[in-house]
């Protein structure tokens, strides 16, 4: 009896989480001119309009380039730091860990203001570079947390076995450690890309005038009213942000199966 109640309650929580998102997807196929009910027919028209909207396409390009560069830099820094924390006994490890995740603990608005004003003081104005710095700094802690958790699962004796069989440290790193680490590296990169792609709080402070990322473009479009295009864009974003991690998880699973862990 009690369990049934909890199950029903949990089901309602799931409905609460998914219903608004489902409605966005549903309305994106609505033939009506207004981005709202009633549904007058099924149409792909809004996706077609989306593909021809220059501003949105430009925002997509900006977001993707920014996300890729952020993922590249953040993952490189994050993997190196995680290796140090997992593989070595570092004095003051707790303090270092706390310092490394500090960007999560500082409210993003405050981080955004501090970085904007400091770099401006140094003569770096709002620019793509500032945007990139900002995205790297708030994705880094997440990359470190994810990569660290994955690295801990890799057994060290495999590397020791390779070395005792005559492999050099460099050979061991490239032939044993790196392939074993690949799923962790990919997970970190994917996480960084997704967080960067989705960010709006910091981005609105850092972006130069005239440059829009996908979230800031959506935000600007919301000023008027919900157009059917926003729902279509939402559907594309949902497919991207949900599909990519799922794909990533699948790839990571296949890779880790191949490397036999």
């Amino acid at each position: 009896m009690g369990w049934q109640l909890i199950r029903g309650y949990a089901l309602l929580v799931y409905v609460f989480m998914f219903l608004p998102v489902a409605v966005v997807v549903l309305l994106s196929f609505n033939a009506s001119q207004f981005g709202s009910f009633p549904i007058t027919g099924v149409s792909l028209r809004w996706f077609g309009e989306l593909a021809q909207n220059e501003a949105i396409l430009r925002a997509f390009r900006t977001s993707i380039i920014l996300g890729l560069l952020t993922a590249l830099i953040s993952t490189t820094l994050g993997v190196l730091a995680s290796l140090a924390l997992v593989r070595y006994r570092v004095p003051g490890e707790n303090v270092i860990s706390t310092l490394l995740i500090a960007p999560i603990l500082v409210p993003e608005v405050v981080l955004a203001v501090a970085l904007l004003l400091f770099l401006n003081f140094l003569g770096i104005n709002k620019s793509f570079g500032l945007l990139l710095f900002g995205h790297v700094i708030f994705t880094l802690p997440f990359v470190i947390l994810v990569v660290q958790a994955r690295l801990m699962a890799i057994r060290r004796d495999v590397e020791e076995a390779a070395m005792s069989l005559g492999a050099s440290p460099v050979q061991t790193f490239f032939q044993i450690t790196l392939p074993l680490m690949l799923p962790a590296v990919l997970a970190g990169a994917l996480f960084a890309f997704t967080i960067s792609f989705d960010d709006i709080t910091g981005t609105l402070f850092w972006k130069p005038g005239g440059v829009e990322t996908v979230p800031t473009q959506i935000f600007a479009m919301l000023r008027n009213s919900i157009s059917p295009e926003i729902n279509a864009l939402g559907t594309v974003m949902i497919v991207m942000t949900v599909g990519l991690p799922l794909l990533g998880a699948a790839v990571a699973r296949i890779l880790s199966r191949k490397s036999g862990t």
């Binding site: 730091a81 970085l115 770099l119 700094i137």
Partner: peptide, 28 residues
């Protein structure tokens, strides 16, 4: 020394892009 070499890029980035800017806005 090795762990510090591995840690230095991340720690440098966080120092220059978070801690120094925070100190700067205190002054500002």
């Amino acid at each position: 020394r090795q762990p510090w070499i591995l840690l230095s890029p991340a720690l440098t980035a966080i120092t220059l892009l978070l801690f120094v800017p925070l100190l700067f806005i205190v002054v500002y």
